[in-house]
Each structure stands twice: as structure tokens, then as C-alpha cells.
Amino acid sequence: MSNLEKYQHIFKESFQYDGDLEQLEYQGIAVWDSVGHMQLMAALEDTFGIELDVDDIIDFSSFKKGKTILAKYNVVI
């Protein structure tokens, strides 16, 4: 799987979501609430073998924004 596929897969799995990922934002769907956010962050850390900083966890506000955050950890989506 490419990084993009892994990245998409994490969102789909975490949120059981089949809609348009590019437009997906924090609190845009019911399951991406503060608990869903924790599930998502832990899954990203596990999959890509990274440790996200607290500031980045807070800034991770959308599917799109997440790509630029992961780039900081040398994960190119």
C-alpha cells in the first residue's frame, strides 16, 4: 500500500466512513469527535511509526491538513 492508501484506509477504518475524504473535517461527522480524534491519532502513529506532538494533534483539523502535518514527520502522502 502507498502512504496515501494507508492514510485513506486509516480514516475509513477509524470512522467507518465511505464519503469524500478530501472534504472531511474534525467534527464534520459525528464519529470524528474528540474520542474519534484519539482513535485516529493513535492509528496514524501506529501505522507510520511516528510520535505526534501535542500541538500537531490539536492542529490536525482535517484530512487535508493532516497531510501537511505528517510531512513534518517525513511521511509523504
Partner: peptide
């Protein structure tokens, strides 16, 4: 999942945080 305190604990003891 409905128990935010359990989820917060689970998030706390994730691999990255323990490391």
C-alpha cells in the same frame, strides 16, 4: 467508546506516549 475517561486512558497508554 462512550466512556471518554476510558478512551483518554487508552490514548494515554498508547505506544508513542509510553515511549
Amino acid at each position: 467508546r462512550p466512556h471518554t475517561d476510558v478512551m483518554a486512558f487508552a490514548f494515554w497508554c498508547r505506544r508513542a506516549n509510553i515511549a
